[in-house]
Design a protein around this nucleic acid. Structure first.
Lengths: 354, 354
DNA sequence: TTGTAGGCGTTATCAT
DNA sequence: ATGATAACGCCTACAA
């Protein structure tokens, strides 16, 4: 591998001092146009790139940010991350990605590193900021030790968390609207004449699950409907979880099935759809389905899924914006302005079939 | 943000010289146990971490690798990357991820950076190695200028490409077995008694598409079957593409439909399934489907998808292994030993329904 | 086993 | 507008 050329050599080859070269490198105005041009030419010719190491020694910046999330394989995180990465790059930040695999099925992976350990690793990488997209922060009760770890991390480098504010945590937060989606869905179903509505998916003890179930219950009550506890079956966020939850819901209510079910997200909905099929139930005719969080292929499932578009792209970009402004020393909180949007397709039974 | 403590301060606080501290930092044996312990204690107490900048000035290593792929939102790349990231981390390398968005629908994104430009950016990040998982390298005819860019990059830092060897390219390659999957599928269908078999999906001009279509045609011929050209409809790799391709296949062969269709991957298959449904055709009864590349939810679609498990986990880890060994100066090529595995489910019509 | 000192490639400060 | 030079934090001969 080629040994890199240094600023000193560039200076020699262009017959100036290193300071002058440094000036053109950093767009300092006080360089005569002719010299600037000559130096730039030499730089290009040799393909010179300043050493981030030497630079870092001075300004302590890497222009890298660290992103921590549980599992990039999850379409929710993938779509969020895609925005984060490209938006960050547009602002000259590159992105270090860490999958913590924090989840119930973490045991699929031989050796799970604790989320706190990632903080140490990421700190050693000397990133300019950290973005946390999910994991322990989503817990209903975040362990005090974890909050402490977060605070300690934030003392070293700006930390932005995509999620609900955590008591006693000094990091910056970008808060999603957790409830509005379910509420819209409940209203939608009720407007369609449903009275027996269920809810499947979401890991118990996780904020988004609790919030959504709560919002679901609330809006049902507000509209004078009762909610059968056995109609609510949390599990987790993936297709197998939706499948199991739906099977359980069906089996424990075989005498009086719901006519509509809200799923935590599209993967859960797909599992649920599968469960209905396996039980010989048709969707939407016998049981309608809708999901709170739309992923890529909602438009191609059988039946097509009615879901909420949570505008994750927007959220991802906002999170980066917040992080960059924090890196640049601003302490102002960026406020979000997003409402999930109902996308009606076939599975809720409201659309005319194609 | 807290100013970091330096090795000098650690030395002072433990009453030794910086070199001794440096020795314990680098596990040099020649330090007396008592001093070593005392120093370690001070290090822990102050949470000292050596500056990667200062270190990098000496050894020119970041312990970071760069990964370039088109779109992390694509389950194929996501599952590959997950393995790459966690396996790299296990070997003390962190991962910088870049989505080039190289694809036909790249126009969805406002401002597309050319893949070559990523090379420059990634080089400036001073990564220890680069892993390329997809993009232009997958083209049937890689532009000479791109090969040149690859070679130039490889001159600076080890580059491992996940894909077929490119003429004139000096990078290291980890080659997947592109054809075996389709061949198995073709044999499977023929064994089930199918004679009219089609193929949908894959972008034309991309190696994997060409190879698979070629392998498909070959094995059909070898088994004495003819292949109707109109039964082969490439398009792209996502669900909408599978949908369109299948619609086109059906419309242009309405007098004599195939009885089985091989899809490029699971997303394409899901689109194809949707197309069948919309045309009132049942799967697998009227047209059977199978896919060459299994993704996460094959087990939950309606019907469940018969697919090939390409063992992407294994491939991802091998690629990292190859990269790390190259970083460490080895020039030996790691050879792969993987065969895609047929997973029979419902869509091919071979399984007994559950 | 331990300490001293030089150098890695930049930027910043201070002269000129 | 330009140049000399001192940091920056660490590693590594070399010396003791």
């Amino acid at each position: 591998m080629k040994s890199k050329i240094t600023i000193t050599e560039i200076a020699e080859k262009s017959g100036v001092s290193v300071s002058t070269v440094s000036r053109v490198l950093n767009n300092s105005p006080s360089v005569s146009p002719k010299k600037r041009e000559r130096i730039q030419q030499v730089i290009d010719e040799y393909g010179y790139t300043p050493s981030i190491f030497a630079r870092g020694m001075i300004n302590h910046k890497t222009k890298n940010i660290g992103v921590i999330l549980p599992d990039i394989t999850n379409p929710y995180f993938a779509s969020l991350f895609l925005q984060v990465e490209s938006f960050a790059l547009k602002n000259n930040y590159a992105t270090l990605l860490f999958n913590t695999m924090f989840s119930r099925n973490a045991d699929r992976y031989d050796e799970t590193i604790a989320e706190e350990d990632y903080f140490k690793i990421i700190l050693e990488k000397q990133v300019d900021g950290v973005l946390i997209l999910g994991g322990q922060i989503d817990k209903e009760d975040v362990p005090a030790s974890f909050v402490e770890a977060l605070n300690q991390l934030h003392r070293q480098v700006p930390v932005v968390i995509m999620g609900s504010k955590i008591e006693g945590c000094s990091c910056l937060f970008v808060e999603r609207n957790l409830k509005q989606g379910v509420t819209s869905l409940a209203h939608h179903f009720i407007a369609l004449g449903h009275e027996r509505i269920g809810f499947v998916g979401g890991e118990p003890g996780i904020r988004i699950t609790t919030s959504r179930i709560e919002a679901f219950t609330q809006s049902m009550k507000a509209l004078g409907q009762t909610v059968q506890p056995s109609y609510i079956v949390p599990s987790d966020y993936y297709a197998p979880d939706g499948y199991e939850a739906m099977i359980q819901l069906l089996d424990s209510n075989s005498d009086r099935l719901p006519t509509a079910v809200i799923a935590m997200n599209d993967m859960v909905a797909i599992g649920a759809l599968r469960a209905l099929k396996d039980r010989g139930l048709s969707c939407p005719e016998q049981i309608a389905i809708a999901s709170c969080d739309q992923f890529q292929q909602s438009d191609y499932s059988i039946p097509r899924l009615t879901s909420m578009d949570q505008h994750n792209d927007y959220l991802g970009r906002m999170a980066v914006l917040q992080l960059i402004s924090a890196i640049n020393g601003s302490d102002e909180t960026i406020s979000l302005n997003h409402s999930p949007e109902l996308i009606v397709r076939e599975s809720c039974g409201a659309a005319n079939k194609r």
